[in-house]
Amino acid sequence: MTRTLWDSTVGKKTIMAVTGLFMLGYLVAHMVGNLKIFFGPGEFDGYAHWLRTMGEPILHYEWALWIVRVGLVAAVVLHGVSAYQLSRRDIKARPAKYVHKRPRASYATRTMRWGGIILALFIFWHILDLTTGTVHTSFEAGHPYQNVIDTFSTWYGNVIYIVAVLAMGLHVQHGFWSAAQTLGVGNATRDRLLKTLANILAAVLTLGFISVPVAVMTGVVS
């Protein structure tokens, strides 16, 4: 069954759908966690600390967090490799372009590949910035509240983040509905419901994530 999945275009799309939904679930949790910044440094830093102690005493310190991280890396790799292989195949299947060009598909649909590449690059940047602090100007481990404010006090920190979040919103809008089709959940009667859900998810995630840099820029959070 594993071979059938990996060798088939439909199977690879299934892998993309499942890993995509897993990452989407993580995004929702991440976004909700970010909003704690509006309740001050105590609550935000406390939440960040809890993420490391979660699962105790069954699990050791940071174990739960590392399990999530390993799962996410696996999801990103499987999603990316499948997307790369399918894209190569798709481009090969349509070598000659039409002379008469016309606009095709929605913006979200057309930007899935570039949007995905932007998101992959952003994930690297984001981890180096706010997890390891490698590219951060004044990183202090254990003080995420101050680190976030410092990141969004630089123009490039804001630009990179907001561009990535907009790409994420578009990716989720087409991706969520697409995943439902790939997993065979979509049908004619559910189509409107699934499209509405995809739009709501994309809008809520985009607004939720963007609210943090906007709050720092406007001085609501300082």
């Binding site: 439909v10 798709d90 349509r94």
Partner: peptide, 10 residues
């Protein structure tokens, strides 16, 4: 050698 589906709806 057909491509995969990206659900563009075309």
């Amino acid at each position: 050698g057909f491509g995969g589906c990206t659900l563009t709806g075309e």
